[in-house]
Design a protein around this nucleic acid. Structure first.
Lengths: 227, 227
DNA sequence: GAATTGTTGTGAAACAAATCACAAAATACG
DNA sequence: CGTATTTTGTGATTTGTTTCACAACAATTC
């Protein structure tokens, strides 16, 4: 049965990403150990929050000794299955798809776009080191590379149709850039990225901010902005 | 005072965006009135949630009569200040910047990228109908077009520096695509969009899902029945 | 090796968000 | 016109998340 799965990334997971980015930076700087308040300061959360988050993912430190950065990063690799490579397919080689196919940070994190697809024959040529295939080869490629996750960057009109096809071939997770709510069975994970909404919400908060700026209503200000 | 402002868009605001998208679609289909449960079904939330959200933004319906779509959309226009145009600048014309500069949906929602900027002289030519300037003209353009919001698509190494410059010229809100936490004073709104994290969190949940797939546990069954 | 210090880990408390339950209002219908 | 029906709007309740407070423990000092 298909339904709208409003899929929300847990805040604790988002924070774990923050901590990791911070740890990577600290490691590059030669630091070997951190305390919860170090991470807290660097990421703008409280130290209890850091420890609670770690506890949720069963990460333990040493009383008084804090956390070994290498140890922490290792645990996080496990949590995120980063020890192995992840093969991704990207559908839709429009502006956004093209940019995503060239985005080097995916590879740096072991997420490899193994192939991209587009219905437009003009776009079916290699443009960023990654082949661009016609949709007819989707099944073949997904099976060959055991792909479970796809990036969907097609026009909204065809998003549902393409998503259905992806799922027929075994895709279990989609990062969806089309501004539509995909209907999927409950075992499929959808993460919607809506660029307009991201921009518009900033505009919304800026206006709100400007409005209250005169009176310095700190309480309101701080409720809307979390650290 | 500068600090890390981890700025979180409220869920209720995100849902309002959902409702609006849905209303626009319904309107195109010729529908004139909706009930809270119509919107709820279409967006995968509960009808109480829809009404609570509306109540937060002081949107009122008619008992028994539901909501007039035109009326709702009008109210939302007000909430999001969509009656007037919003001028945006975009900094960084790499892959992502270029794609964003061509993203037509911004314009459809009255958000106009009036100019883009890059330090690279090779990129300083018009590539998508929008001029690409050198950074030296930032102040001039921001003032001329009364820009308050910027999109930051520069490499992470220069993100903070560019953000500082933007703020010096009066920018109050930033959609930041660089994977760094910007340090900003509390009156500046930052919305971080981290594409790697978005993809990686899907991978995380897909793995988790696959692990529990064998059991088909109650939680999932419950979700099946819910909608 | 006892006392002191600094940090983790986590129950308890406070706070925030979502759901429930139902009164109030608008409409329809006999 | 009065009764039944439908849907909103919201106080009460439940559920979820963050912060607080402090015991437990490891390292350090005397």
């Amino acid at each position: 049965m298909k339904q709208i799965t409003k899929y929300v990334i847990k805040n604790s997971l988002k924070r774990i990403f923050l901590y990791r980015a911070c740890l990577v930076r600290l490691k590059l700087m030669g630091v070997e150990k951190v305390f919860s308040y170090t991470l807290a300061n660097e990421t703008g959360v409280t130290s209890e929050q850091v420890r609670k988050d770690f506890s949720e993912f069963s990460i333990k430190g040493n009383k008084r000794g804090g956390y070994e950065i290498n140890d922490l990063l290792g645990k996080m690799e496990d949590i995120f299955h980063r020890n192995k490579d992840h093969n991704i397919v990207l559908i839709g080689m429009g502006n956004m798809g093209l940019a995503l196919s060239k985005y080097s940070k995916f590879v740096q994190r072991n997420m490899n776009i193994v192939a991209t697809f587009d219905i437009d024959p003009f776009k079916q040529k290699e443009r960023s080191g990654i082949p661009v295939y016609s949709m007819s080869r989707l099944k073949e490629i997904i099976e060959r590379f055991k792909v479970k996750v796809a990036i969907l960057a097609v026009p909204e009109i065809s998003a549902q149709e393409v998503a259905d096809e992806l799922m027929r071939h075994g895709i279990k997770g989609i990062v969806n850039f089309a501004p539509v709510l995909l209907k999927v069975p409950p075992d499929v994970v959808i993460n919607n990225v809506n660029l307009c909404d991201e921009l518009e919400s900033v505009i919304y908060y800026v206006h709100k901010q400007l409005k209250i700026d005169g009176f310095k209503n700190l309480e309101l200000l701080y409720r809307d902005m979390k650290y």
